[in-house]
């Protein structure tokens, strides 16, 4: 949480995270280069750079895309999500080295502009096997550039969280383009079953994780609920919610988080104002609902971030009939004080 913008709000965990990113990237590049020079020494330095950074970027992208759904399935992985932004920017840098070196190698020093050359030097757009795969990589790199360039809370705030989120969901378009770029490009020539098999497993893993995580959410979202005579919706019994934790309940396609704490119940909108994290998967810490993604906090009674912070989410009214929790489906405006229900 921050009041003003700094390039990076460093803390201990971000530093460790970034050191590990750097160490893993260097380890990959050194192992790739070392083995290539040992067993396939006739390579050129340009080809080595293009291949080492290209494959590194693809692997990093798979790890990045796996972190989201795997953290939803097992919250122990949430520390990997905390600084995923830096992992994304690092992945873009690796992809950019691959892209820029490829452009220099294959498209500069000719009789046309290099960017024009990417789109026109192979015109077999109607063929699948001969498709100009470099175009796919170029478009993916442009998307990754805009994502990396806006990977900062300044842009999150100024673009608005919904626009920012839509822009960053473009990572899936970039991923699809990159998979096609590799399968219609490198894999048309470098046909090792190990690399093709490895990337195929990676693709299936990413799709499966997203489907499983999505299926779990659909189950929550489509759960039917009974109404009482005042049209309030039955949520669950109080014993079904752990202390300081929440139950996520869907009302008119909006998810609501019902928290139990200190013998009380409060309900707020489930979506964190920072990056859309699921507040209902968070925990009450120091009296505040704490987002599991980046630790943004809200007071359970009014959905407001504690001063001096200014984020606010919608609140909901609850009532208790014996130990059955009922929710008024009408949301209050963001930051509205609602008296907690004693349980």
């Amino acid at each position: 949480m921050g009041l003003d913008y700094q390039t990076i709000l460093w803390n201990k965990h971000k530093k460790v995270y970034d050191k590990l990113i750097l160490a893993f990237m260097l380890m990959y590049l050194l192992v790739f280069a070392g083995l290539t020079f040992t067993f396939n020494a006739q390579t050129t330095i340009e080809t080595l750079i293009i291949r080492a950074f290209g494959t590194l970027a693809v692997i990093m992208l798979h790890i990045i895309l796996a972190i989201g759904p795997i953290s939803r399935l097992n919250t122990s992985f949430l520390p990997l999500l905390y600084n995923r932004r830096h992992l994304g920017v690092s992945m873009f840098l690796a992809a950019a080295v691959h892209g820029v070196f490829s452009m220099i190698q294959f498209h500069t020093l000719g009789n046309v502009n290099p960017v024009y050359s990417i789109f026109t030097s192979n015109l077999d757009y109607t063929s699948l096997t001969n498709f100009p795969f470099q175009v796919l990589g170029f478009v993916a790199l442009i998307i990754l550039f805009f994502m990396a360039a806006t990977s900062h809370d300044f842009w999150l705030k100024n673009l608005s969280p919904s626009v920012w989120k839509k822009l960053h969901m473009m990572v899936y378009v970039a991923y699809a383009l990159i998979i096609l770029h590799v399968f219609l490009g490198a894999f048309q020539q470098e046909t090792s079953p190990f690399t093709i098999g490895f990337l195929s497993i990676g693709f299936v893993t990413i799709v499966s994780l997203h489907l499983i995580a999505g299926f779990n959410e659909v189950k929550t979202d489509t759960k039917k609920s009974e109404k009482d005579e005042s049209n309030w919706l039955y949520v669950c019994r109080t014993g079904e919610i752990e202390e300081d934790r929440a139950k996520i309940f869907t009302v008119d396609k909006e998810r609501v988080a019902i928290f139990k704490y200190e013998g009380k119940l409060s309900a707020i909108h489930n979506v964190c104002k920072h990056q859309g994290g699921p507040l209902g998967e968070g925990k009450i810490v120091d009296g505040c609902i704490t987002c599991p993604w980046h630790g943004y906090q809200y007071l359970p009674g009014n959905g407001q971030s504690p001063p001096p912070f200014t984020e606010k989410v919608a609140t909901y009214e609850l009532k208790l009939v014996k130990d059955k929790i009922y929710l008024n489906p009408e949301a209050f405006p963001e930051g509205t004080e609602v008296k907690p229900v004693n349980c």
């Binding site: 280069a33 083995l35 067993f39 390579t43 080492a52 494959t55 692997i59 020539q189 470098e190 690399t195």
Partner: peptide
């Protein structure tokens, strides 16, 4: 990381 680096490096055609 080590496994993927080895697979991608050693699978290159000569």
């Amino acid at each position: 990381i080590l496994t993927t680096a080895a697979i991608f490096s050693l699978s290159q055609q000569p």
